[in-house]
């Protein structure tokens, strides 16, 4: 080989070439009649990361996913899924994607193993290939002993794990999970998290939606908080917390002894009297005052002199950001 070498490229540290983004969304808009459910969302997933879409009910999470997977056509915007334009080539793109839907839709007429076999066929996989993979998938889901069990006999957690195993039948590059742990008990949730971490370590990119903050904080490299069809904040969990909220929180509740009035003498009355001076910002929600601050020492010193009031001092977390950005009103 006599071609001149480009020393600049050769001398760069040997980082592996970045894999292309498994999902790129630009300017996504989805309208139903006159209602805009998604109003201009941009997202970029990095290969191998876990990305979380956080948002209250009706924020547009599921609609964004449906558009990204080519299950519904966007009103505007562009989507590339595994390098393919969507919705035009959504079917080809889905060859390389695994999907765990919000509602269980395992085939009730089949056993666990049959569910995996039948699902693998939808990807055009040969029966022999799928059958060879079934023991591995069942083991991953902790369902080795349930190979020939009917779906009706499985617990909620087992169904979820089988759905996860089903989504892996085609060895996807990108795994999409819509609220994967909703309705599961803590043991089952931890098992799902453990399996997701295992997949991420193995190089699978994971995109999930949730409204559990601990799930997002625990699993994701990056996240986006959605509400009313827009991205309100994005970044790593730490960045989002640092960028949107004071680092410390003091939650104050209980009775404020000696200050009982006709209007009540609880934490709310105390907060209205003192919280503004002692914290950067405070909110009253029901019987609790949430005080956000950079330095908690003066407030803690003050609270120590107020009999009856109880408090909880903790670092700010994602839930505080979420509630700050999306409000405390109920979403039904």
């Amino acid at each position: 080989m006599t071609a001149p070498r480009d020393s600049a490229t050769l001398s760069t540290p040997s980082t592996p070439p970045a894999r292309p983004s498994p999902l790129l969304i630009h300017g996504l808009v989805k309208r139903y009649d006159d209602t805009e459910v998604v109003r201009g969302i941009d997202l970029e997933l990095r290969a191998g990361e876990c990305f979380t879409l956080l948002g209250p009910n009706g924020a547009g999470k599921t609609t964004t996913l449906r558009c990204a997977l080519g299950l519904t056509a966007p009103s505007a915007g562009s989507i590339r899924l595994c390098g393919e334009p969507v919705p035009e080539r959504a079917r080809e793109a889905r060859m390389r994607v695994g999907i765990v839907p919000q509602m269980d839709n395992l085939d009730p007429d089949f056993t666990c193993a049959e569910n995996l076999l039948v699902y693998g066929r939808y990807f055009g996989l040969a029966d022999a290939e799928i059958k060879a993979r079934i023991p591995e998938l069942l083991a991953f889901a902790g369902l080795e002993n349930k190979r020939d069990a009917r779906i009706q006999s499985l617990s909620g957690g087992m169904k979820r794990r089988l759905t996860l195993a089903r989504a892996l039948v085609n060895r996807p590059e990108l795994l999409v999970l819509d609220e994967p742990t909703t309705g599961l008990d803590p043991q089952a949730r931890h098992l799902i998290w453990d399996r997701l971490k295992q997949l991420i370590r193995g190089g699978t990119t994971v995109l999930l939606t949730t409204h559990f903050m601990d799930e997002a904080e625990r699993l994701s490299d990056h996240l986006a908080i959605l509400d009313n069809g827009r991205v309100l904040a994005g970044g790593s969990p730490r960045e989002v917390i640092a960028g949107h909220i004071e680092p410390q929180v003091v939650e104050v509740f209980g009775e404020w002894s000696g200050h009982e009035t006709a209007a009540g003498g609880g934490a709310a009355a105390w907060a209205n009297a003192h919280a503004a001076a002692l914290s950067d910002r405070f909110e009253i929600s029901g019987e609790t005052a949430f005080c956000y601050l950079h330095d908690a020492a003066p407030m803690l010193a003050h609270l120590a002199t107020q009999p009856g009031l109880r408090y909880l001092h903790r670092p700010a977390n994602l839930e505080d950001v979420f509630l700050k950005l999306t409000g405390r009103d109920l979403r039904d």
């Binding site: 079917r91 889905r94 839709n105 085939d107 055009g124």
Partner: peptide
Amino acid sequence: VQRTWDAILNAPVS
């Protein structure tokens, strides 16, 4: 009822 089609549509089937 069973949402079998939803599951199938998540695979590369139109």
